[in-house]
Nucleic acid binder design. Structure first.
Lengths: 123, 123
DNA sequence: CCATGTGTATTAATACAACAATACACCTGG
DNA sequence: CCAGGTGTATTGTTGTATTAATACACATGG
């Protein structure tokens, strides 16, 4: 039901859109799959339905979702079921570059950073 | 002279503060070192001097910087010259956790992510 | 057919970031 | 001493972003 942190600095609607991008690219959401309704998501997280609608709307504009009138939003059929690993990696690239820059500013040894990340990736 | 991206979603003043945190923790800015004046930084990046002043002011409140009246801002003397590696790693932890979560949503193999990051860290 | 479920257009409230233009208080250094 | 360098307080404006409240159009499905 989406991982949303209302306290985060990142806007809620963008948290949802970006999560959709990744979950669809990664194949955890498959083409045709029906998403939870805006009211369900909003009720569950105690946020405004329009905030969810805005996220869904942007995802539709982006071609990620499709409107099924009267039924709700579904993962777009045009989506190739799972993006190639290179395509998925590209979605992570900006974050990787930021991380590398910050690590350099902190004068942290590369292998220490890699070890820590490796542990986090195992969980 | 600070790495500032005026187009970024992150506010300019916060980019500066966070960069100061890391550069000081990492030891690239040493206690007593004089920072460039607000007018210099503002002129160089074509931003408002008050935006830089705001960042400096927050850094001073945080204990990172000291006001030297008539001279400018300097790295606070109270700063232990370089934070321990564990302390510096802690500053990177939130970003590492976000990255791990996103990689998982993308269903990316951990070692592929680690390899890419490793390459970025070498540069 | 119509209650019930979709998504959404519209409007408003609120907050925030950045800029601009001053004026000020202070210290340095020749 | 004083010209020129610090940072900063103040006030106002502009543009934008985010969320919320409300009402609406529409399709489903028993």
């Amino acid at each position: 039901m989406f991982a949303i942190q209302p306290t985060s600095a990142e806007p809620i609607y963008r948290q949802i859109v970006e999560q959709l991008r990744r979950l669809i690219a990664g194949g955890q959401l498959v083409a045709g799959e029906l998403l939870p309704s805006v009211r369900d998501v909003a009720g569950f997280h105690a946020i405004n339905p329009m905030t969810v609608s805005r996220a869904y709307g942007m995802a539709e504009t982006e071609g990620l979702l499709e409107r099924l009138r009267g039924k709700g939003m579904a993962v777009a059929a045009t989506t190739r079921s799972t993006a190639t690993q290179a395509q998925r990696m590209a979605l992570l690239e900006p974050q990787l570059q930021d991380l590398a820059r910050h690590a350099r500013e902190l004068e942290l040894p590369g292998d220490a950073v890699l070890r820590r990340l490796g542990r986090l990736l195992e969980e």
